[in-house]
């Protein structure tokens, strides 16, 4: 069987399109590359959707945490503390458990016990908490002068927030937020490994790498392939975030732009 045929059969296996049975013999390099690559679809799906939805929630959380009213501040603080203070491993366990119990009472929760939605919700909450802490830190380090000049120009309330505070916060937070994005994509590897069951052998990249390691009894081929895919993914994420960073700092002179990138090297 040629490699092209393998790609046709297994390229979209992770989402259930193509050959139903996984390869049971040969385990050629082509099969391993194709299937593990097809599993990456899930890693990208989880990472991208959790990141985008988490971005909005994180903004709201960061605002709530810096609010004066304790009714807003306290819940936000606790939410962030609990999700930043516990391992994702444990969060997945409780997430799955909670959705199972909810499902028994309200049938509407049925899709939540499947990874595509349940794990996404857990990852969304997790990344929201981490990003909110980053945004909150940035919010506190906005130069006083910026706000004062905004006041001097007659900005106040919503316009001041929209035009001055929020863009500055984003600019300051961006390098750390880039790191959070990378961590999030890496964390997606945990979904099928510990938390959620894999249906009909539709799993993420680690699931298939595990499958091959189990079948060939040789961990030295599938896991490095997996590692390679993730390095590629990391590079792509870095370049996308780099472009966004350039856009955010487009008003700054060339020299100053580079400086900001290096200063806030805070991860998670």
């Amino acid at each position: 069987m040629s490699c092209w045929m393998t790609i046709q059969d297994y390229g979209l296996r992770a989402v259930g399109i193509g050959e139903r049975l996984l390869p049971r013999e040969d385990f050629t390099l082509c099969q391993q590359f194709t299937l593990i690559g097809s599993g990456m679809i899930w890693n990208i799906y989880f990472g991208a959707f959790a990141l985008i939805s988490g971005f909005f929630f994180a903004n709201a959380l960061a605002m709530a945490k810096s609010a004066r009213s304790p009714w807003l501040r306290k819940p936000a603080e606790w939410f962030i503390f609990i999700f930043r203070g516990s391992p994702l491993f444990v969060q997945f366990f409780f997430g799955y458990f909670l959705f199972l119990s909810l499902k028994q009472v309200f049938p509407i929760f049925t899709p939540f016990t499947a990874a595509w939605l349940g794990a996404l919700v857990v990852l969304f909450l997790n990344t929201s908490a981490y990003s909110a802490e980053i945004f909150f830190g940035a919010l506190r380090s906005i130069p006083k002068g910026d706000v004062e000049s905004a006041d001097a120009y007659g900005f106040s309330g919503w316009p001041r927030f929209k035009k001055i505070i929020w863009p500055t916060m984003l600019r300051l937070a961006w390098p750390a937020y880039t790191n959070e994005a990378i961590f999030l994509f890496h964390a997606t590897a945990l979904v099928f490994f510990s938390g959620f069951p894999a249906w009909q052998q539709k799993g993420d990249a680690l699931y298939y790498a595990n499958y091959f390691a189990d079948k060939t009894f040789n961990p030295f081929v599938p896991y490095p392939i997996l590692a390679m895919y993730f390095i590629l993914l990391t590079l792509v994420v870095l370049s996308i975030f780099g472009l966004a960073n350039r856009f955010l700092n487009r008003h700054l002179p060339q020299e100053a732009r580079r400086k900001i990138k290096l200063k806030m090297n805070v991860i998670r």
């Binding site: 890496h186 590897a189 945990l190 390691a213 961990p219 590692a227 990391t234 590079l235």
Partner: peptide
Amino acid sequence: RGVPDIAFFLF
């Protein structure tokens, strides 16, 4: 940094 720690640990 580019590889998830879990993948690294496995082999």
